[in-house]
Amino acid sequence: MSRLNPIKHFLAFRELVGLLTRHRQLTFEMAKREITERYSGQVFGAFWTIGHPLCLMGVYVFIFAVVFKIKIGGTLELPLDYTTYLLSGLIPWMCFQETLSKGAGVIIANANLVKQVIFPIEILPVKGVIVSLLNLLISLLILIIYVLATNHSLPAMYLMVPILVLLQTLGMIGASYILSSVGVYFRDLKDFIQVFCMIGMYIMPIFYLPSQVPAIFRFVLYINPFSYLVWCYQDILYFGRIQHWWVWAVFAILCLGAFYVGYRVFRKLKTMFGNVL
């Protein structure tokens, strides 16, 4: 019965939150270090953290909205333009995929810290999430500016964004924990993740509407957990209304589940890190 005891599960949750608040200074310092370290000695420095996603977003908008001239929007069903539709799915996914690819290698990359320094290594996967979140917020800001410029007003639903970001953060931390700890033992994982990140964009409804997909292939969208992430963001940023409550429920369960399972897996595997690294 103890497996199902909710209090015990809640304690594990509280433990992690306690750990992160206690070491919040260090966590932020590490995140800051990651940004400065990656681009130190370069002329544009930290600009590149937003430079990369900005360029990618620009290319996609140019190809799909300008070259292919895909036009949707202007109706009650589809209130805003195609660029907004594209960006509202692309932005959360780019943030998530950055976490995934970084998470798989974070323990291996910091092997010397894990082996030689006494410090809470639970922080390592979290710092990557913080860096990705920074990008997410900047990209969202750009989107908001774009919507304001084209639509001259913001849908009221935009107030829900913090809740989504919070849920996504939990999901990202969980995924990061799972990938980082499993990645230590199974080093090919980071290549699997890289391939998945490359094709992932096309197997979720970012560039197209789910209704445009032939019915026999549509199940792919539903079994991809990241589709729910995209749908939730589109609900708020593009449609301005919650289309399906169950999508939100699935998303919330996925994020909380990943967070909980991730922490448990990490806790279990971390004792053996020193032996494998």
């Binding site: 270090r33 810290l113 030689q116 320094v117």
Partner: peptide
């Protein structure tokens, strides 16, 4: 102090 400079960031 188990190893030399394992946690020093060379750039900072």
């Amino acid at each position: 102090m188990l190893a030399l400079a394992s946690s020093l960031n060379p750039e900072e």
